[in-house]
Amino acid sequence: MKKALVIVFAMVIMSFSVSGSFAQDMSSESFRIQGGNFNMTSGNKASENFNLADVVGQVAAQIFASKGYIINAGFLNAAGGELFGFSVAPSVLDFGSLSPNIPVEGKLTLTVNIGNVSGYTVSVIENNPLKTLVEAQIPDTSCNSDSPCSPIQAGMWTGTGRAGFGYHMEGKTVTKDFKDETAFRPFAATIRNERPALIMQSKAKKVADVAHMTVKVLIDQNQPVGQYKNILHFTALLGL
């Protein structure tokens, strides 16, 4: 009896740890509803007698003529019930107390989850360089003098001689200029009217891609004491 009670208790506890699942689709014999839309078909089907893509094209024209609209009129309604997700962890990068000539690094993990739709892009921009309330700034890095960098082109940034703020990316879908662990870029900045810089991109479907960003801060002995802050803004968009 005791054994049975313990086992039951264990099963109850474990059952609460199982995540719920969320239905995305409702279906019956006659139709399949995805994401609040009524979809006629998905995927490309063919038989001996006809190519269903052509039939759908004709049907779509008939629907437009009678109803006046077609939703997901593009490529066979492929995006209808799909999910696109993006994560950034952690939600704040704390650099602690900054000391001259001692680089401080923080790490972010970026994750993209995409369904049966092709590709995505991820870009990043800062609102302004790290600065205090009295407008003292840590400049964005320009990398080593023999390997200059820009918001769209990484360069080598090594040693402790050049103060600045920049980032490095690692992952299979990051842009190709991050060739090794010494390749850094400064952030593009809204305050300079720059466009967000592309950091991840893919044309693959049904993937969960992970990339790691290393953010580095290095100050010199002339840097005023203070709490330096800014906002890093990541944008994920379906690749068209």
Binding site: F84, S91, G96, L130, Q227, K229, L232, T235
Partner: peptide
């Protein structure tokens, strides 16, 4: 502390 705060935007064309 000195820090970078993170914001995220997710877009659907």
């Amino acid at each position: 502390n000195s820090q970078s705060q993170i914001a995220q935007t997710l877009g659907s064309p």
